[in-house]
């Protein structure tokens, strides 16, 4: 299967860092997931082949790490921490607020495929609690209002992208009409 050039360059650089091939597995899985969205059967077979592992061994590893998933997730993975430091500063309210707003529960994905909500364990933002991560970005000292703004920004970003795709499509349409004409 095909990964991006960036992935390949990173993979090629990483493997020789270790005396055993499989050592590169965990970070490689995360990078592959970032690219594909989840760890599909195809990704698993490909990485197993590259690192001289069985698919079973790769699955054993994937299922151990909480960030790795074999199921598709939304474009924005909203990870709300409710662990102790966040708990005492309203982390659960943030989670409940997101759940109501998005209409999904823990590990649920919105029907438009934009958001996946996840209650997560401590993300290392205790002194800036409550906190959440959207994909890899930290959002700290959250209030429900601040959370709304974060979600709105995500929406706007998604819409902008959609617009861009549409305009490319309509440009393509125009071009094809012209060439036909």
């Amino acid at each position: 299967m095909k990964f991006s050039e960036e992935f390949e360059a990173r993979f090629a650089e990483m493997v020789p860092h270790y005396p055993t091939k499989r050592s590169a597995l965990v970070p490689t899985l995360l990078y592959a997931q970032d690219e594909v969205g989840f760890l599909s059967d195809e990704v698993i077979a490909e990485l197993a082949g590259r690192l001289d592992l069985t698919e079973l061994e790769v699955r054993n590893v994937i299922s151990y790490y909480s960030m790795l998933t074999t199921k598709p997730r939304g474009k924005f993975n909203l990870q709300v921490c409710t662990n102790i430091s966040c708990l005492v500063r309203g982390g659960e309210e943030i989670l409940q607020h997101c759940a109501k707003k998005l209409g999904v529960g823990h590990k649920g994905t919105t029907p438009d495929g934009l958001f996946t909500l996840e209650e997560v364990e401590c993300i290392g933002a205790c002194s800036w609690a409550p906190a959440a991560q959207v994909n890899y970005d930290f959002h700290e000292n959250l209030t429900t209002e601040k959370m709304d703004r974060v979600l709105d920004k995500c929406l706007a970003q998604a819409q902008e992208q959609l617009q861009r795709i549409k305009s490319v499509d309509s440009l393509a349409d125009t071009l094809s009409q012209r060439s036909e004409g």
Partner: peptide
């Protein structure tokens, strides 16, 4: 080297396992 979500990997020998791709 990067992890992928596991508190237990903070335990030193578990971290070595993780680094070895396990």
């Amino acid at each position: 080297h990067g992890g992928a979500g596991a508190y237990e990997v903070g335990e030193e020998s578990a971290l070595m396992e993780s680094l070895e791709g396990k």
